[in-house]
């Protein structure tokens, strides 16, 4: 467990208030409110179909909730497209890997870096000069991420050929390339073996420590959640049924019921 003494949890970074989202008749989220504070690791847990992914999709502007507001860095957001959220420093990974299959690891990461790059059509077509300098400068940054996540060996490999666990890692690398303020991770450890999970936990904690990145992650493995998160939000059938530090949530009767599948 991360020691509370050395870690500085800051102000509210993102505030979700009374969010409701439905698809046709299906209510994916009902009246959800919670906060994410600067530098913390917040876990969202809940049974399948609880609405966890939908919550992340609302935060980064992919879904537009019918009701409620999201306030990011003190600013209330209107309907927003995902690329605008990205510009504001929100990056994410996906439950089902969403890498650019036709590109190499390095290119995927460089693509994650595009927001920070400026060269336009004409200077890129000419290449020599500013565009090349920019490529090299950002390549150096991406190489640091590659070193950090220990994926040097697969730099030039098309990501489609990589095993699952490495693909998840490349996806994290791509998200990190944008130097996000808030990093949303949708089941970063799903389908991994124990060793891979341990690596991933280490990377997540390191990102949080070294870069001060705020992290909001969805995870099913309770052991992992208890270990790495500062706070846990529990969803069930689109409603919030728990919110607190891991130890608290673990002993919450509603949460236990939800996981044991008690009839509603």
């Amino acid at each position: 467990m991360s020691s509370v003494t050395e870690k500085k949890i800051g102000d509210v970074l993102l505030k979700v208030e009374n969010i409701s989202l439905s698809f046709g008749g299906v209510k994916a989220l009902t009246d959800i409110s919670f906060e994410i504070r600067e530098h913390e690791v917040l876990a969202i847990i809940g049974p399948n179909g609880a609405g966890k992914s939908s919550m992340l999709n609302c935060i980064n502007g992919f879904y537009h909730p019918q009701q409620g507001t999201i306030t990011y860095r003190g600013e209330k957001r209107k309907q927003m497209r995902p690329h605008q959220a990205a510009k504001q420093g929100i990056a994410r990974t996906f439950q089902n890997i969403a890498l650019f299959k036709g590109m190499s690891t390095l290119d995927n990461i460089m693509t994650g870096r595009l927001l920070k790059m400026k060269a336009g059509l004409f200077s890129s077509a000419f290449y020599k000069g500013p565009a090349e300098r920019e490529q090299i400068e950002h390549r150096e940054f991406c190489e640091r991420i590659i070193d950090f996540l220990e994926i040097q060996a697969i730099r030039k490999v098309p990501v489609g050929r990589l095993p699952y666990g490495l693909q998840k890692r490349v996806e994290l690398a791509r998200a990190l390339a944008a130097e996000p303020t808030l990093l949303l991770l949708d089941e970063p450890m799903a389908g991994m073996n124990l060793e891979e999970k341990q690596d991933m936990c280490r990377f997540i904690l390191d990102v949080n420590d070294e870069f001060g990145t705020t992290i909001c992650l969805i995870e099913h493995d309770m052991g992992v959640v208890m270990d790495i998160s500062d706070r846990v939000v529990v969803l069930d059938y689109g409603r919030k049924i728990g919110d607190g530090v891991p130890a608290e949530v673990k002993n919450n009767q509603a949460v236990i019921d939800a996981y044991l599948g008690v009839q509603h």
Partner: peptide, 20 residues
Amino acid sequence: NPGRQWMAIRDMDIAAEIIG
């Protein structure tokens, strides 16, 4: 840059938009 943008749209347009 332009090529990476294009290929990102080609390979997975949703993810491309989400990374900005």
